[in-house]
Design a protein around this nucleic acid. Structure first.
Lengths: 208, 208
DNA sequence: ATGCTGAGAGCGAATGTTCATTCTCACTCT
DNA sequence: AGAGTGAGAATGAACATTCGCTCTCAGCAT
């Protein structure tokens, strides 16, 4: 192998193994939480020995970091969809629906775990911040363009609205896990109707 | 001491010690989470030995159970206040303000921790259920009476509204911890205005 | 072809620490 | 004396991480 020319297949192997480990770790963390999961359990789930696993990640913390970074980036990217949707509230509803959907069940379970951990772990909180900022910018832009379009009340403060929407989004992720019997995804249309009333421009009332 | 007549002062001592331990445990759990806190740390915080502590609580799990039960009962009771408030939304705002206030900082920090834990721990989820049901009933009653009073749109489904309000409440507790810089308590009036629009009876629009 | 070499990959036992819980003993009241 | 209380060392399990070993295989000289 010529010096400086990395072996493509070797790099492939590395990143594939990393992916395998991360997938196993996500499943374990979703089932038992960050602190309830031992490295041995992750090894078992990934079908490899501790010695092998530690060749790809130097510590449990780095594993958590990699997962959190991936999840938060993906979540922020979700809001890019809002740039091309005609109705902001319909777009938001679809974003939430995607967040609550069965396919992302492991990731969704991780959401509350990540947030609870981030409250006490400053490193994690900092790792989350860029994605948080990015999604704030995207949401804000979507709101402002909704105001120009007449869908959103132009009197409202966009930043306050962003916060309220985020509060509602994370609250739904939380309660969807905590009370699956509520069938939150089925209620999204009703929620959307209410949110629409909240954000719509004030219609003229009959009072002077 | 006569048989069958328990020593009052001894009972006092017992419950005082229990309270001391619970207070220490709440502080530790709020700082490091349930799984990041060792019994030794709680002992140090309470200023007693493990031997002494285990005389009052048989296990770490029982300690968590006692705390969670206390917290959730207290939170459910908060909504009783809604029965006597003239404006539902003002009352709700005060409830949330109380939940976010500095005085209940330790309890508030525990909120997300409890929820994350309850997602995976069925025992804990069951322990939370009665308080959850109670608060649902209280909120629902307040909404229905708000409908009769004309403050709330009578067309809306009360259960959906209860869920949405809970989602928002827990989302705020979460984000108040995660982003203290948002100053959520200061934004409560703005939020209340938006919620009022969402819940108010539909004013007649100029469209036919 | 064959054998040597060194590096990457993997295994699983070993290490040292931390943890929840228990045990033994001593002290203090009545 | 005896019941209740507390201290703190002891116990055994579980944990994150490391170590030493083996295996595989490409590259290269013979």
């Amino acid at each position: 192998m010529a010096l400086g020319a990395p072996d493509i297949s070797a790099l492939d192997h590395r990143s594939e193994q990393q992916k395998r480990i991360l997938t196993a770790a996500v499943q374990c963390f979703a089932r038992d939480g960050f602190h309830g999961t031992s490295m041995q359990k992750i090894c078992a789930e990934a079908g490899m020995s501790p010695g092998a696993l530690y060749r790809y990640f130097p510590s449990k913390e780095s594993l958590i970091g990699a997962i959190v970074e991936g999840e938060s980036a993906e979540r922020a990217k979700l809001f890019e969809y809002l740039e091309q949707t005609p109705s902001l509230i319909d777009g938001l509803t679809e974003c939430i629906a995607a967040l609550l959907s069965k396919e992302s069940i492991d990731c969704a379970k991780l959401g509350p775990e990540i947030m609870a951990e981030a409250i006490r772990n400053e490193k994690l909180r900092e790792a989350l911040q860029p994605a948080e900022d990015e999604s704030h910018v995207l949401l804000r832009a979507a709101l402002v363009s909704g105001m120009e379009r007449g869908e959103i009340d132009p009197e409202a403060d966009p930043d306050t609205l962003v916060m309220l929407l985020k509060v509602m989004g994370d609250g739904m992720i939380l309660h969807n896990q905590l009370h699956p019997q509520w069938n939150l995804p089925d209620r999204l249309p009703a929620f959307a109707t209410l949110v629409r009333r909240m954000l719509a421009p004030e219609t003229k009332t009959l009072r002077p």
